[in-house]
Design a protein around this nucleic acid. Sequence first.
DNA 1: CGCCGCATTCAAAGCGGTTTGAATTGGATC
DNA 2: GATCCAATTCAAACCGCTTTGAATGCGGCG
Lengths: 359, 359
Amino acid sequence: MNLKDLADLLGLSPTTVSRALNGFPEVAEATRKRVEEAAQLHHYRPNTQAKRLATGRAMAIGHVIPLCSQHEIVNPVFADFIAGAGEVYAREGYDMVLISVPVEDHAQAYRELRAKRNVDGVIVHAPRAGDGRIALLHELGLPFVVHGRASGVDLPYAYVDVNNARAFERATNFLLDLGHRRIALLNGVEGMDFALRRQRGFARAFAARGLEPDPSLMIAGEMTEAQGHDAACDMLRRADPPTAFITASLLSAVGVRRGLWELGLRMGRDVSILTHDDELGYFRNGAEEPIFTATRASVREAGRRCASLLLDMIATPDMATDMAPATQLMEAVLVLGASTGPAPDRSVPPMTTAQGLPL
Amino acid sequence: MNLKDLADLLGLSPTTVSRALNGFPEVAEATRKRVEEAAQLHHYRPNTQAKRLATGRAMAIGHVIPLCSQHEIVNPVFADFIAGAGEVYAREGYDMVLISVPVEDHAQAYRELRAKRNVDGVIVHAPRAGDGRIALLHELGLPFVVHGRASGVDLPYAYVDVNNARAFERATNFLLDLGHRRIALLNGVEGMDFALRRQRGFARAFAARGLEPDPSLMIAGEMTEAQGHDAACDMLRRADPPTAFITASLLSAVGVRRGLWELGLRMGRDVSILTHDDELGYFRNGAEEPIFTATRASVREAGRRCASLLLDMIATPDMATDMAPATQLMEAVLVLGASTGPAPDRSVPPMTTAQGLPL
DNA sequence: CGCCGCATTCAAAGCGGTTTGAATTGGATC
DNA sequence: GATCCAATTCAAACCGCTTTGAATGCGGCG
């Protein structure tokens, strides 16, 4: 059942039927009603491909996903983001097209996407400092929104980001206020922009008090449970162990906790843990009451906002050229859990306390 | 730059250019070469929508995802499956279209997908016993592959599944052999086919020895860390606690382990844990050596196989009608970790052992 | 009564490819 | 030299929708 069939059936021209179904004003109300009923009755749906070709709009948004050793899509943070974006697409009648491409072929992938015209816009995931994709997409004229930012890129671009620097500065201050001085930072992969900003916030809090973080307590890597566990075990066995950990993900925090358990240390007493919490659907930080003290910002909400923003940009193409692109900075909230507490005595003035007891 | 432009540029007809680029034999080699070079030079890519309309193939596979309170896509198992399928699609030039729809609207979603013709086939996720989607897709004539099976559906259909019953039967036997009798089963959501089969395997192992599992030790639910933790805490505090847990997911197993730690019990000594392991990219069961004893089957591989199977079906449409649909049953391997050990004495003949010491 | 304007409706031309059936060419055959 | 055939190439139709510009019908007005 296609448009022509339906038109023949109704004794109307395809033009009129098309207009009736698409809400054009020049169709008589009686006709529109008749057409709509017939369409309903015969389960008529316009052919997507034909519609797309005729209108020149793909009605689809592309997500190009790094296909590295550690496929990005299996990253739960990514999955939650996609879930949020998907809600918006579904509501607006857009399709979400996921494309896994080795990270070195991304430029080519974007070019093809553009030339083949099978998406109306793309979301840029996991930007790095100085990320080249932004310039490329500018050049291609393909509408895009970046999830995060790219330090060092001075082109204007639309983005939705969490104020990572501020979140981690506050987190660090919170621990410094509790008397912690040896604070470990388990960060995301080096070069990722969000990791960079978090590190900056971390360092800024120290600097504001004339202190300096210990570089040997700062590591970067994939934010997995294993990362947290291994780092915790390693660092806590050192002569001068940290009294607190800041982790970039709940998964890492859980790993640190496992490390503590194995070493017989109590979380929140002997060692504090403060984590960033993306509010993942499948890995929550407790139910009502948080388990871990955390900087909290919903990545799913970020997904929703990125998608909305992009669809807005697509709907009003002139906006893109006229004014500066829209940007959104989400503030993380600091929620208190049971994983943090005052620094244990031994660490206040290191090597000065009388009782040199092991924990 | 479209086909016509390119043809004009070359002084050829669109017909010849199209054929040259699509590898038809009736084009002179010299011409083909000339055309290919020009296409390369001018970055010509055929317009996706036009191609799809002309060929009647959408070159896209749909994944309709339940959008419940717990959005399925954020389930890491699902994400890994998608990653595997995505590899295959990328290789074959197919797009992957993710569509989030409230579970009660799935039927409508499939109908629309079919009528609008924007996918060539679909993957059915998370089948339930007696799942109605299979009959619907049959009726719609939309090619599909089920990830898993649907007990009680007697229509033929293509599927890729893990032999869940056998895997869990072996797992249960393994624990029974170690002397465990009070074994808890932390299963997936009730009604899910895979959960049903796992329960059947579990029960079968007991039955084969003339034993019966305790229903109060069998729970069903979302397979999260919290599920495992809460169930473990609850059950282990009872008068007659289990000596071993079988969990349907690594996440649940990790939750059980947390419960053990909190109660001061040693994993593999006081209480054994055996889990199913989907080999998730972001949540691994140890590195070289497994932490948990587990029935292991890669869900990512299942994704690859589902995708391949579906693309095969689409490539040879007659196959679908002629013979029985292809099916694949993957066997899980049982890998040994440090989370299992002999049942502690107290449980061999319950209430008979002399020393009634608390653990 | 003729003309105008408004409300509807329609025929036809795209959108950018693929595919059918016919036309052209050049060399081999008789 | 005419005929035939295989190898190439092309014009035109088609996929199913949107959209432009023109046509139609009809009541109101001068």
